[in-house]
């Protein structure tokens, strides 16, 4: 567990460092995720070495963003004022996204 946690934080800090060093428009944790995927794919790293910590983190991922959801209360007025455009845009955009993605795969006969 400790080893796998070390790997996760190791990739996180490398991602943050690369993002900071080159001033990239991509967050360090996203770079860390990409680098970890590449390392696993090139077999520079065993799945068993990272799996214990990553499984636990993924399992409780939803808990970690609860504080951000609570922060919505600060912006309640903004949401209340523009709830209609937000609702319309989000629903139609989601339907379009579902449709475009599914249609391409359906047409390819997969």
């Amino acid at each position: 567990m400790l080893k796998s946690l070390l790997y996760i934080f190791g990739f996180l800090i490398v991602g943050e460092f690369v993002s900071w060093l080159f001033q990239l428009p991509v967050a360090g944790n996203i770079l860390g995720m990409l680098l970890l995927f590449i390392a696993l794919k090139l077999q520079l790293l065993n799945l068993e070495d990272v799996k214990p910590a990553s499984d636990k983190l993924i399992k409780y991922l939803v808990v970690f963003f609860i504080p951000y959801g609570v922060g919505l209360m600060v912006h309640f007025n903004l949401i209340a004022e523009f709830w209609l455009p937000i609702t319309v845009a989000v629903i139609f955009s989601s339907i379009l996204t579902l449709y475009v993605t599914a249609k391409i795969l359906e047409k390819s006969g997969k």
Partner: peptide
């Protein structure tokens, strides 16, 4: 919210390593 988030920050800190962990999930 700021008062709550004094502690909330400790919880949301784990979002960073969780995004990295998604790399493992994706690989599997």
């Amino acid at each position: 919210f700021e008062t709550y988030n004094v502690g909330g920050k400790y919880v949301s800190f784990f979002l960073g390593p969780s995004v990295v962990a998604l790399g493992v999930f994706f690989y599997e």
